[in-house]
Write a protein that binds this DNA or RNA. Structure first.
Lengths: 143, 143
DNA sequence: AGATTTAACATAGCATGCTATGTAAATAGA
DNA sequence: TCTATTTACATAGCATGCTATGTTAAATCT
């Protein structure tokens, strides 16, 4: 381990995110879900019938990334797309029954993964940890 | 933003890591470097003439990932591979002069990116932030 | 020594992210 | 109204990560 690796926030963030993704992937794979699909479902479980552009804004990924993820979700029977009546450029995204039925189990899997990652960290430090991540995100989103 | 997004360590970690990667990418692109290449260089700047397996262990990525990254680095003139005399299966990885010359500038770019991400966070919280990330990494590496 | 297992690396195929670019529809401006 | 711009989405191409699998050389085990 070089000094940079031990002490660089960016390096640690990358490593941590890869481990989160790998852990979540193992937990939700039995449900037929992939991590990026789960992130989109988190939004659609709140409210569906939304445009791609709306989902792009909610998840802060590029439009092309979202388009590809939605294509895979459609292929896997998680969503349907129906033409918008008010704007012929848009196709609204709706959950399938299958996707609706996965909400509780998938969220439980994600909570378990978070619990594993945060094991041995007390509540005050957990709150601070999340706040620090939100602060770093805000800092980098600005410029 | 769903509750899960605001309050899930995994979600925030993913978002933060993407922003780090994007920011670093912009800063080191003028040097002809990509983020994953920079991570490998951090190891090689410490010591080169190493095996692929050694680098895999140092960076905690899969062997196939490292093989592909090294291929791109070779293509881009950052490394050379020479057959090992002691083990005919291995090809030792050496830095090119070009890669050696990039160390100071690339590390400065990474430090600038880290500084942007951590702006407004005091020293004590920075230390804690890194410690918490290392703890989460250790928790997830175990299983 | 000869057979078996392990280790090092390559390759194929896929997911998720990005930038760049194209197309069609909606909107704004003259 | 007619043109110019903007918006919504699709697509191509690439980087970085993964799993699965193949090949060859080294090491191990009777």
């Amino acid at each position: 381990m070089s000094d940079f690796q031990e002490n660089s926030a960016g390096y640690l963030a990358n490593h941590m995110a890869r481990l989160f993704a790998a852990g979540l992937q193992k937990r939700i794979q039995p449900l037929g879900l992939a991590p990026a699909q789960f992130m989109v479902l988190l939004e659609l479980w709140v409210r569906d019938g939304r445009t791609q552009a709306d989902l792009v804004g909610a998840l802060d990924v590029e439009q092309a990334t979202m388009a590809n993820t939605l294509n895979r979700m459609q292929r896997d029977g998680l969503i349907e797309r129906r033409a918008s009546e008010t704007d012929k450029r848009s196709r609204l995204v709706f959950l399938t029954d299958r996707a609706r039925g996965l909400e509780a189990e998938a969220k439980a899997a994600a909570r378990t993964q978070n619990a594993q990652a945060l094991a041995g960290i007390d509540d005050a430090d957990r709150v601070l940890f999340l706040a620090l991540m939100r602060r770093a995100i805000a800092n980098m989103q600005r410029g």
